[in-house]
């Protein structure tokens, strides 16, 4: 077993964790700077706050999907690889489940 395969087990959920920290941090930064009160006409009236949160969400979703694609290609390399692949799928599902709120939840007071 090469050490890399062990690290790959956590690859999907590392992307999830980075998304969590990024969304949490930028939510607070946006509220502090009043981005929720900046409506963007070119984005159909969406606030700058919601737009940046959605952008962070989508970037991480793409990164999570890329991890899934790569691990799918490596699936047959050894015992831990398919496990890492399924863990990455679970992480992608968890991202949608826990972060989709950026589309509809209130962001600031």
């Amino acid at each position: 077993m090469r050490p890399r395969s062990l690290l790959l087990l956590g690859a999907g959920f590392t992307v999830w964790a980075v998304a969590f920290v990024a969304l949490y941090a930028m939510l607070s930064v946006g509220c502090r700077f009043g981005w929720h009160e900046v409506a963007l006409d070119m984005a159909g009236g969406l606030s700058l706050q919601r737009l940046q949160l959605i952008a962070i969400f989508l970037v991480h979703l793409a990164a999570g999907a890329a991890v899934v694609v790569v691990l799918r290609l490596w699936k047959d390399r050894g015992f831990l690889y398919p496990l890492a692949y399924f863990a990455a799928i679970a992480a992608l599902g968890a991202s949608v489940f826990s972060f989709a709120g950026v589309f509809f939840l209130s962001t600031c007071q």
Binding site: F97, S98, G101, L105, S106, C108, Q109
Partner: peptide, 20 residues
């Protein structure tokens, strides 16, 4: 079970926050 709890928590959170 988790989907039910998350939905309940989201709905409740929206009501507790002072917005709109």
């Amino acid at each position: 079970v988790l989907a039910g709890l998350v939905t309940a928590a989201f709905a409740l959170g929206e009501r507790v926050l002072v917005v709109r």
